[in-house]
Amino acid sequence: MNIFRLFGDLSHLAAIAILLLKIWKTRSCAGVSGKTQLLFAVCFITRYIDLFLHFVSLYNTEKVMKLIYISASVFTCYLIFFKFKATYDGNHDSMRAEFLIVPAAGLACLINTKFDAIEILWTFSIYLEAVAILPQLFLISKTGEAETITSHYLFAQGSYRALYILNWIYRYHYESHVDTIAIVAGVVQTILYCDFFYLYITKVVKGQKIVLPA
């Protein structure tokens, strides 16, 4: 464990917590893409499938973190699609999620480390996570604005994988550890946030709201 990975995971936890708080406090999921949250839930379930296969004692942090990620993302989907369904902006959350899931699944079968079920699921989860934020960014471009709290959520969500890139550089240099698939997907994922990061740094930090077109 290194500082980059630690802060990356903390940033990821913060993002999940910010979104949950936003929906719970405002009792509304306006401006939140349900599809992105569904895709994240699928990512966690397919990536941590080993939790369900051979149950291991929960004492170690990693298992607890995996369970937190899975339960928090499923609970977020429950809030969006059931509890606060009336506030779900289905019209603007219109990016076809199939166009992300099918290519990720296909690519996972073509480019992977080992052709076995668990590894393919892990690879699928990595590829899907790289593009899972697209419906959310698409929704913001359609509505033309993002609530400040949603911007903070996106900043934390984007920073998590950006910090993981620093973690991979660190591990390459000090542990000569390389996970090419995760690195390539992580770089793609972070690049997708660049436009948003620019808006966040230039606007939200100054207390302004993000309104598109910038």
């Binding site: 990975r5 990821h12 990693e62 995996k66 990620y69 480390t113 080992k114 996970d179 995760a182």
Partner: peptide, 10 residues
């Protein structure tokens, strides 16, 4: 080759 390519990250 038994590559212990366990993915040890979240």
């Amino acid at each position: 080759e038994g590559n212990s390519n366990q993915h040890d990250e979240l």
